[in-house]
Each structure stands twice: as C-alpha cells, then as structure tokens.
Amino acid sequence: MRILSALAVGLLFGLGLTISGMIDPAKIISFLDIAGAWDPSLLVVMASALAVSFLGYRIVLARGRPAFEPAFQLPSKTVIDRPLIIGSALFGAGWGLAGLCPGPAISAAALGEPAIYAFIAAMLAGMALNDFLPARRAA
C-alpha cells in the first residue's frame, strides 16, 4: 500500500506542478527575474500549497500515526547551521541558472528535452557527491 500511495502522491504532486506551469523553466526564471518582466505565479503556487499543507498537517499530525507506516518521520534538527545555508545558497544559484528544481526536473523529463536530461544527470551526480563523500554527509 505504501508503494501505491507513493505513486498516487507523486502523480498528484506532478499534476500540480504541470497545471501550475512550474515544470517550465521559463516560468521559474520569470519569477526570479524581479528586475525584468516579473511573473508572480510561483508566489501564488506557494501560497496556495502552504495554505493547504499548513491546515492539513495540523489535522494529520494530531492523529497518532500515518496509515501505512508505524510512525511519522519528521526532521529532528532545529539549528540553523552552515551546511543548511551554504547548501541552500548553492541550490538557489543552480535553480536560478537552470530554472529547475528536483520535482519539476523529473516531471519535465517525460517531455523529451535533451538539455533537461543533462540537468538530471548532473543533479544525481551532485547528490552523490554530497552523500557518498564520507567527510560531510547531510542527513
């Protein structure tokens, strides 16, 4: 069941990205281009997603446990540290450069644009670079 639910949630998530236009790099770059022809659509997507998830999380987390797992798995770190800020800054720079982040990149991959495959291959390499180097591994 947890495999089916993950598939359904991934599909719903991807449909949300597709309908909102967020799988289009041009749309992301127009949002970040505040000095140009600014397109605030992403702000509306975030506001709408946050309204639903803020209320939904309240209801769901008040219940004892998830349906298909023994317990909720929530991040335990609360300290704002250097890896968080440096990582987020690097992430944001790449996001602005390519107009893609991981979710939209995977959805957009279905549409057959070769340069997006280059993005995904490099993204996986970047993840492996962090996760497989023993010195510093993000949780």
């Binding site: 990582g87 790449g94 390519a98 970047g126 492996a128």
Partner: peptide, 10 residues
Amino acid sequence: GGLLVGYGAR
C-alpha cells in the same frame, strides 16, 4: 545548474 541543485539540496 543540475550539479549545484543536486549538491546544494543534499
């Protein structure tokens, strides 16, 4: 961009 996104996100 992908390299920065992947490494930075992790």
